[in-house]
Simulated scan of single mutants.
Amino acid sequence: MLEAEKKKVSISVKTSQADKKKAAEIFDGLGLNLSTAINIFIKKSIAEGGLPFEVKDPFYSEANQAELNRRFKKVANNENIQYHQLLDDGKQ
């Protein structure tokens, strides 16, 4: 191993106190501390050439899309449509 690879450096990560606590509890249950878990993440990211998991927007999940389609069909068929005045349009 090269001398440069042996030398450890510090990095700083900002997160909420609540997230840090939850992550520490999860990793502790796996026998890891935060530093080791973050190093595993970094090594895995290097090996994968990117994030070691898929990043998705939950809006596009299959379940959410099915629910949206169900609601669109109800609107298209005028089923259970309730009208609400959301803004004051000046009409009484």
Rank of each mutant, 00 (worst) to 15 (best):
S61P: 09
L30R: 01
L86E: 14
N39Y: 02
V13C: 07
D57Q: 02
R71I: 15
H84S: 14
Q65T: 11
N39C: 13
T15S: 14
N80M: 06
A4V: 14
Q82P: 05
A23G: 04
I11W: 03
A37F: 05
K14A: 12
Q82N: 12
S45A: 15
N78V: 07
A4Y: 09
Q65I: 12
I38S: 09
Q92C: 02
Q65S: 10
G29L: 00
N77M: 09
L68R: 12
S45G: 10
F59D: 10
F53H: 06
H84F: 13
G90H: 01
S10F: 06
E48D: 13
P58V: 02
A66I: 04
G50V: 05
A76Q: 11
A23K: 02
K8N: 13
E62I: 04
A24F: 01
A4P: 10
A63S: 12
E25T: 01
R70T: 12
L34D: 00
K74G: 08
V75S: 09
L86T: 13
Q92P: 05
D88K: 08
A24T: 10
T15N: 08
T36N: 08
I46H: 05
V55A: 06
R70A: 14
N78I: 04
N77S: 12
Q92H: 02
L30C: 03
D19Y: 05
A23H: 01
I46L: 10
G50S: 09
H84K: 06
K6L: 13
K8C: 13
E54A: 05
G49Q: 04
G49F: 02
K7H: 14
P52Q: 01
Q65N: 09
L87H: 06
D57P: 07
D88M: 03
